[in-house]
Amino acid sequence: MIKVSILYPYRENGRFDMDYYCATHMPLAAKLFGPALKGWSVDAGINAGPPGTPPPYVAAGHFLFDSAEDFYKVFKPASEQLLADIPNYTDGGNGAILISEVRVSV
């Protein structure tokens, strides 16, 4: 199983609408990805370890797929619509994408 993570860097005074991201953008992506998507989640950054420090990322969206090929197959036709929605929740542009292999899940 692979995880596709979109990491949105923390920026002082940057705008990130977590409510919109969780309630509108991520469900839109899930709908567009269809049954190839095995699950999704969102992390909201809290800090960088020590209390009071800004987090390295304000948010991370995660999608689970059986393979990277499954992701690429559904992302390509959905990409234009998903990329066009980014300004609705952030002024920070596209996040960084990390595709990783899930080795352990509990």
Rank of each mutant, 00 (worst) to 15 (best):
F65A: 07
F65E: 01
F65M: 07
F65W: 08
D66S: 13
D66M: 05
D66K: 13
D66F: 12
D66G: 12
S67F: 05
S67I: 15
S67C: 14
S67Q: 09
S67Y: 05
S67L: 13
S67M: 11
S67N: 13
A68C: 14
A68E: 15
E69T: 11
E69P: 03
E69Q: 14
E69D: 09
D70C: 08
D70E: 14
D70T: 13
F71H: 04
F71R: 03
F71D: 09
F71P: 00
F71C: 05
F71N: 02
K73D: 10
K73Q: 14
K73V: 14
K73M: 13
K73Y: 03
K73A: 15
K73S: 14
V74I: 11
V74W: 09
V74Y: 06
V74G: 11
F75H: 13
F75M: 12
F75V: 04
K76C: 12
K76R: 14
K76W: 07
K76E: 15
K76L: 13
K76H: 10
P77L: 07
P77S: 07
P77Y: 13
P77R: 06
A78P: 03
A78W: 02
A78Y: 06
A78C: 08
A78I: 08
S79D: 07
S79V: 11
S79E: 14
S79W: 05
S79R: 12
E80K: 11
Q81C: 14
Q81I: 13
Q81M: 08
Q81Y: 03
Q81A: 15
Q81F: 02
Q81D: 11
L82G: 03
L82Q: 01
L82P: 02
L83H: 08
L83M: 15
L83F: 08
L83T: 10
L83R: 06
L83C: 02
L83D: 09
A84H: 03
A84S: 13
A84G: 07
A84T: 08
D85P: 10
D85T: 03
D85S: 07
I86L: 07
I86W: 05
P87G: 05
P87Q: 02
P87V: 03
P87K: 04
N88I: 00
N88Y: 03
Y89S: 00
Y89G: 00
Y89D: 00
Y89R: 01
Y89A: 00
T90I: 05
T90H: 01
T90S: 02
T90G: 01
D91R: 10
D91T: 10
D91S: 00
D91V: 04
D91H: 07
D91I: 04
G92P: 02
G92F: 01
G93Y: 12
G93A: 07
G93F: 10
G93V: 03
G93P: 06
G93D: 11
G93S: 01
G93Q: 03
G93L: 01
G93W: 08
N94W: 11
N94L: 13
N94P: 13
N94S: 15
N94H: 13
G95I: 00
G95F: 03
G95K: 01
G95A: 02
